[in-house]
Measured scan of single mutants.
Amino acid sequence: GPREVTMKKGDILTLLNSTNKDWWKVEVNDRQGFVPAAYVKKLDSGTGKELVLALYDYQ
């Protein structure tokens, strides 16, 4: 199956793709996968990378 990404509340993840309104593709610890968009919030990183903050645990 697809590689699952797990996250804990407060984690910072790299946002790869947010074109789908329900599932965003993120990368964390060299793993890529989809997380519910409602579970993360975009951060203003000030760099080229888009980052998101995990609002809830997800696994």
Rank of each mutant, 00 (worst) to 15 (best):
G48V: 08
N17Q: 09
R3S: 14
A38P: 06
E50Q: 15
T19W: 08
P36M: 04
S18R: 08
L55V: 06
E4S: 14
D22N: 13
L55K: 04
V40N: 00
T14Y: 10
V5K: 03
D22A: 08
L55A: 02
G46Y: 11
S18Q: 09
G33F: 15
G46I: 13
K9C: 07
L43S: 03
N20I: 05
N17D: 15
A38Y: 08
D11L: 03
V52L: 08
M7N: 01
F34E: 04
V5L: 15
D44M: 11
K9F: 05
A54P: 00
V35Q: 01
D57T: 05
T47C: 12
D44G: 14
R31I: 15
V35K: 00
N20G: 10
S45K: 09
E50T: 14
K41T: 11
K49N: 10
K49V: 14
L16V: 09
W24V: 06
K42T: 06
Y56W: 08
G48M: 10
V52Q: 00
L13I: 06
L16F: 03
E50P: 12
W24Q: 01
W24L: 04
G33W: 14
T6R: 10
E27V: 09
L53I: 15
L55I: 09
G48E: 12
Q59I: 13
A54L: 06
Y56H: 12
A38S: 14
D57G: 05
G33R: 05
P2S: 14
S45V: 11
K21C: 07
K49W: 07
K21E: 08
N29R: 09
D44I: 11
V35Y: 01
K49I: 12
W24I: 04
W23A: 02
D30V: 03
T14L: 14
Y56V: 12
Y39H: 06
D57K: 03
A54W: 02
V40L: 15
D30N: 11
L13S: 01
G33I: 15
D57E: 05
W24F: 05
K49F: 08
F34R: 03
I12E: 03
V5Y: 09
L16N: 02
A37C: 06
V26D: 00
D22L: 13
Q32G: 05
T19L: 08
Y58T: 02
G33T: 09
W24C: 04
D30M: 08
G48R: 06
L13D: 00
T19E: 14
E50M: 13
K8A: 08
T47L: 11
K41N: 06
D11W: 06
G48P: 08
N20L: 07
K42C: 06
R31E: 09
G10T: 00
D22I: 13
L16H: 04
L55Y: 03
L16G: 01
G46R: 07
D30G: 15
K8M: 08
G1N: 13
T19R: 08
G1T: 12
G33S: 07
L13N: 01
K42D: 04
L51Q: 10
A54H: 00
V52E: 00
E50V: 13
K49S: 10
A54K: 00
D22P: 02
N17R: 04
M7H: 01
G10P: 00
G48A: 10
K49M: 11
D22S: 10
K49T: 11
N29T: 05
D22M: 12
K9H: 04
P2R: 13
I12P: 00
V26P: 00
T6D: 10
L43E: 04
K25Q: 14
N17V: 07
T47V: 13
K42I: 12
S45M: 13
Q32A: 11
F34K: 02
A54V: 12
G1C: 15
K25W: 15
K25L: 15
E50C: 10
N29V: 05
P2Y: 14
G46N: 13
W24Y: 07
T6E: 10
Q32W: 15
V5D: 02
K49C: 08
D44E: 14
V28F: 15
G10Q: 02
G33K: 05
T14E: 07
F34G: 01
G46L: 11
L15G: 00
L53C: 06
D44Q: 11
P36R: 04
V28L: 15
T19D: 15
G46E: 13
M7Q: 02
E4D: 13
G46A: 12
Y39G: 04
G48D: 13
G48F: 09
V40C: 10
R31H: 12
L51K: 09
F34P: 02
E50I: 14
Q32V: 15
V5E: 02
G46P: 14
G1M: 11
R3C: 14
S18N: 07
Q32R: 09
K25I: 15
Y39W: 07
N29Y: 07
Y56D: 07
L53F: 06
Y39F: 13
Y39A: 09
P2I: 12
G1E: 12
D57V: 04
L55R: 03
E50F: 10
N29P: 03
K8V: 07
P2V: 12
Y39N: 05
A37H: 03
